[in-house]
């Protein structure tokens, strides 16, 4: 199964206040997980709001969800899962000191992340055109021409448009926060790619790659829950 590797640690990166590279790595890993725990609760606050409103306004949330494009959502989920794979492969490449594979996988991860944001931007644009962005311009029309007849539940005209607006508030808040995390991740990846190209990482020192990986996978997990909650309500 797994292999235990023990290459020579790269001691140039050990800060003065740590005893050795091992202690430094353990601290970084723990610190990252503590940070991710805060992220769980950060996103958790909106998820809690979503749960309450979904519970109260089930019909409106279904009507709102029908205005989202399931296929674009599915494709984007696949894109993000693939980016997690390339990120994991990047960590593997760093651990085994293969610089070319590391740069390639990091670059792929970045590009897939950018593709995700592109699709997201396209979806946002569409929602804007359909006047489904909450605020003054918001207008929800039951049995809208944008939605194929087969997908529309019969009772859509009984739906209160104000709570459909609530759904879209949460949709934009949640996906927007998620996208912001993606943008930060892409920025970090760009820095790592440059550093990796210069040969900064090896089996003796790959802490930044591993930590960025943890962050990236976490952002992926958020989407894994956002996708069914926003796109797949029937």
């Amino acid at each position: 199964m797994e292999i235990t590797a023990a290459p020579m640690p790269d001691t140039r990166h050990v800060a003065h206040h740590f005893d050795d590279a091992e202690q430094q790595f353990v601290a970084a890993e723990l610190g990252m997980w503590v940070f991710l725990a805060t992220e769980v609760l950060f996103f958790g606050g909106v998820f809690c709001g979503y749960a309450i409103y979904r519970f109260k306004y089930a019909a409106e949330f279904i009507a709102g969800s029908h205005r989202l494009d399931v296929w674009l959502g599915t494709v984007n989920t696949a894109v993000l899962l693939t980016s997690s794979l390339t990120m994991a492969l990047a960590v593997h490449a760093a651990q085994t000191s293969r610089r070319g594979a590391l740069v390639r996988n990091l670059l792929l991860t970045l590009l897939l992340g950018a593709a995700f944001l592109g699709v997201k931007g396209y979806e946002y644009h569409h929602k804007f055109e359909e006047r489904l962005v909450p605020g003054r311009n918001f207008r929800f029309v039951a049995h809208s021409a944008h939605v194929p007849e087969s997908l529309q539940p019969a009772k859509e005209e009984k739906v209160d448009p104000r709570q459909v607006e609530l759904f879209f508030s949460l949709y934009f808040a949640m996906t927007g926060l998620h996208a912001l995390h993606m943008i930060i991740g892409i920025g970090v990846l760009a820095v790592l790619i440059v550093a990796a190209g210069r040969g900064a990482f090896s089996g003796g020192y790959f802490t930044p790659i591993e930590m960025t990986g943890l962050y990236w996978h976490f952002v992926d997990i958020v989407w894994v829950f956002l996708f069914p909650l926003l796109y797949l309500i029937r």
Binding site: M1, E2, I3, T4, A5, A6, P7, P9, D20, A21, E22, F25, A88, L89, H92, Q95, T96, G204
Partner: peptide
Amino acid sequence: MSFHIVPRST
């Protein structure tokens, strides 16, 4: 420093 390398197949 020792760590686990998860094989790519996994």
